[in-house]
Design a protein around this nucleic acid. Structure first.
Length: 136
DNA sequence: GCCAACGTTGGC
DNA sequence: GCCAACGTTGGC
């Protein structure tokens, strides 16, 4: 069973459409230790919600980890990690932060609790709930 | 554009 | 090792 994650990106910097255009994107730029730990725990085949932060504020689709635990190419110190992801599918109905906050089942998830964390863990239960909101 | 939350840095 | 000051992120 794959692990589930949520990765944030600012759409004006690197959005879902950019990932589609590239077919495989390097997800880098993490400078937070908890986020880095999450990144390093990712394995090939894990699934990630792709969330648009600052603008949009919604989960727009699902991507799959294609390469795990590489060095962040934007980091000169070599201390930070990155992964490569491939788009899997776009949600029919993107799930907004508002909807997530309005759903009691999701009140404890890292996305809500730790709003500044750019790589969050998602439990299988929460994954299911969000998928149903997007596609159910 | 503002501000709250959080992480990091540096003086002591 | 504590904590105030500062910088950054991200929701509003």
């Amino acid at each position: 069973m794959p692990n589930y994650w949520l990765i944030k990106s600012e759409p004006f910097k690197y959005g879902w459409d950019d990932l589609i255009a590239e077919e495989e994107g390097v997800w880098d730029g993490v400078r937070n230790h908890l986020a880095k730990n999450n990144l390093k725990a990712m394995e090939v085949g894990d699934e990630c919600f792709f969330y648009h932060s600052r603008e949009g504020l919604e989960i727009v689709g699902i991507c799959t980890v294609s390469v795990a635990d590489i060095l962040d190419p934007t980091d000169e110190t070599g201390k930070w990690a990155a992964v490569k992801v491939k788009p899997k599918r776009k949600f029919k109905n993107p799930v907004s932060l508002k909807q997530i906050k309005a759903e009691p089942k999701l009140a404890e998830c890292q996305l809500v609790k730790l709003s500044r964390l750019s790589v969050a863990q998602i439990t299988p239960e929460d994954w299911q709930v969000i998928c149903e909101m997007a596609e159910g």
